[in-house]
Design a protein around this nucleic acid. Structure first.
Length: 625
RNA sequence: CGGGCUGUGGCUCAGCUUGGUAGAGCGCUGCGUUCGGGACGCAGAGGCCGUGGGUUCAAAUCCCACCAGCCCGACCA
């Protein structure tokens, strides 16, 4: 009783708070913001390709031929020129602009009732995602995943349903990475989901790292009880662990495969799911079950294994850069951040839009730790029994989260063309039933022409959205999903042989001759790819600081408002003496960790940013995911 | 695993203090007007109020227990 009373009061307080006029006014304001003319669509001259490429522009008056043609009919022209600002003065709009009064349940920023305007952004275009990045980055992220139709939470805590558009991203990543693995001499195989408990105990560091987050299978049968419910029965003699990673079971297998140096190297990769019982799941970034790839190799010499470890982190680095448009820093992890059981861990670290670091891929030199634990022995060229040298390396569906947090904006997802499930989406505009068939036929013809083209060796992915819904809704749907290029094709385009092209990385749209567009399509996609990379690189560089003093370091990572930290900090390139104690203290004080010791760090004398002891090179400090 | 909070149509929530016919917005369906920047009007479908027990003539509402989820800390790709 005493427990519930304060709860009531709090609820009441909340209700009162919601009804406060100032707050209500902000939430209920339904006015459509009058967009400044320079933000309007059609008027702004566009270039689809950088540097005055072959993109064909409208005549000097800035008008598309279509619009000029219609210029004889002033009413149409005004409409076509996208003079949407006038909509605010339209009688119907005016009516909507009136305050609606209090409506129950509307005092929320979530769900369908998203606010048109964020505080202090009067007159700005509303964005598709609410809140905006600068308002609440974690919530923005969740909303992007949702509105882009990438994934959703399932009824199983911590496990997500990856929806077709999101899974399409994974398929593209998978296909291209797989190609790169094959190119570097690896073959795919598949190992069991279940690992005998005793295997997990073999490597001490490994146990320590994963024991706390293992799902354990103890029974193999269900029996109906007297209560009518099903109960586990048939207890296993030895519990099975659902793989959190596969070093142990693969090691045990390799031990059987390897007899002599002639059996080495073993270069194998597996595409699989793994389970790590996480406390705080987040779609794509940290889920209980996730999809990944894990490469496991065994080598004759330490040198060979080290080369493999570095080769694969370089593969990841290049893949991130060229395919995902992610600038990453490749380097080595400090001891405390190493993979459990590894001798060395290499990583690629990306910076996302809240300036935090995210580990996007890792490659581990496992030394002889796992071959010792699993007994991977071979007869050497000299006739002696030796332990193999092993490596493992992996990237996961977290890459998708990284891509989202790097490229997406306040209107939703932006997909780098090279991993887009569909590169070009054709939106047929069918205002009148009598032109519908012709427009759809033209859309299909265009799809075929585009699909015959190639982008980086693969056919262009083209989708025609035939859904019978409003043109604006349809268009926004694909903006939110982040399709690289949208084509609007309407009846008037048919007469003129034109189409309207929109790039997801830029505002507005441009009318082009269909032939010209088809010719340029792959180049436009590459231009988008390059632009995304350039933007992400500029962002990272802008928020990377060379820091030498302890005060500057602490100031860099201390938010102005600790109660509700704003987006702050970034990458700090600082000297570090190498002592674990310094690293630890910084982590405790600032929640900042060493992301990596970059491979390309120049040798340079300096002093540790924490203790002042001498240091030979700089490391990257950052807050991280 | 510690601390705080919440469970009511698909989603976000109101209703509970003071027990008496279950509500709103969005979404969904149909029809009409729309459709090249996110439309509008009208009509409609959809809920044993987390579960179990108790109090009462009567429980979404009061009491008890349980379950689930969220947030903040420790851990992580």
């Amino acid at each position: 009783m005493a427990l519930r009373q304060p709860r009531r009061d709090e609820r009441r307080l909340q209700s009162i708070h919601r009804l406060h006029p100032a707050i209500e006014g902000r939430i209920h304001r339904r006015q459509r913001p009058v967009r400044p003319p320079e933000d309007r669509l059609v008027q702004r001259p566009l270039r689809l390709l950088p540097g005055g490429g072959p993109a064909r522009h409208h005549a000097a008056d800035g008008l598309h031929p279509l619009l000029r043609r219609r210029g004889k009919r002033p009413v149409r022209v005004r409409k076509c020129r996208g003079d949407r600002g006038s909509r605010a003065r339209h009688p119907r709009r005016l009516r909507r602009a009136q305050p609606r009064g209090l409506r129950p349940g509307a005092g929320t920023f979530r769900g369908g009732e998203s606010p048109r305007l964020a505080p202090g952004t009067r007159g700005r275009m509303k964005s598709a995602v609410s809140p905006r990045r600068e308002e609440d980055f974690p919530e923005w992220y969740q909303q992007v995943v949702k509105v882009a139709d990438l994934a959703e939470n399932s009824d199983v805590r911590g496990c997500m349903v990856i929806k077709p558009w999101g899974y399409g991203l994974w398929e593209c990543i998978q296909r291209q990475l797989d190609f790169l693995f094959k190119e570097t001499g690896h073959k795919n195989a598949y190992f069991p989901l279940f690992i005998p408990l005793s295997y997990m105990e073999k490597e001490a560091g490994h146990v320590e790292g994963f024991a706390k987050e293992c799902a354990v299978v103890t029974h193999h049968r269900l029996e109906a009880g007297d209560d009518g419910k099903l109960h586990p029965a048939g207890e296993l003699s030895e519990p099975l662990v659902v793989r959190p990673t596969s070093e142990t079971i693969i090691g045990a297998t390799y031990a059987k495969w390897v007899q002599s140096y002639r059996d080495l190297p073993i270069l194998i990769n597996q595409w699989a799911n793994v389970v790590r019982w996480e406390m705080r799941p987040r779609l794509f970034l940290r889920t209980t079950e996730f999809l990944w790839q894990e490469g496991h190799t065994a080598h004759e010499t330490e040198q060979e294994a080290l080369e493999e470890t570095e080769r694969m982190i370089r593969v990841y680095e290049a893949f991130a850069r060229d395919h995902l448009a992610l600038p990453v820093i490749a380097g080595e992890k400090s001891e405390s951040e190493r993979f459990p059981g590894a001798v060395k861990t290499f990583t690629i670290e990306a910076m996302v839009q809240d300036r935090k670091a995210i580990q996007a891929g890792t490659s581990h030199f496992l030394g002889q730790n796992f071959s010792r634990a699993s007994g991977i022995r071979f007869l050497s060229r000299q006739g002696a029994q030796e332990l193999a040298w092993t490596t493992s390396w992996g990237v996961s569906t977290r890459l998708i989260g990284t891509v989202i947090m790097t490229h997406a904006d306040d209107d939703g997802m932006i997909i780098p063309p090279r991993i887009a499930p569909a590169h070009v989406v054709i939106l047929p505009i069918c205002p009148k039933p009598e032109t519908r068939d012709a427009v759809l036929a033209a859309a299909e013809a265009l799809r075929k022409r585009l699909a015959a083209l190639a982008f980086h060796g693969a056919p262009l992915g083209v989708e025609v959205d035939r859904r019978d819904i409003g043109g604006g809704v349809k268009n926004w749907d694909w903006i939110k999903k982040g399709a690289p290029v949208r084509i609007e094709l309407g009846p008037r385009d048919l007469e003129n042989g034109t189409l309207a092209v929109s790039r997801r990385d830029r505002a507005g749209k441009e009318f082009l001759q269909t032939d010209a567009f088809v010719e340029q399509a792959p180049a436009i996609l590459q231009s988008i790819q390059d632009a995304l990379y350039a933007k992400a690189l500029a962002w990272r560089d802008e928020h990377t600081r060379v820091i030498d003093s302890r005060e500057d370091f602490r100031a860099f990572f201390t938010p102005g408002n600790p109660a509700k930290p704003e987006i702050h900090g970034g990458f700090a390139k600082t000297h570090w003496c190498g002592a674990r104690a310094c690293e630890e203290r910084i982590k405790n004080d600032l929640k900042v960790t060493i992301r990596c010791i970059p491979f390309d760090a120049v040798q340079e004398a300096g002093r540790c940013v924490e203790c002042g002891e001498p240091s030979g090179r700089r490391v990257i400090f950052a807050k991280s995911y």
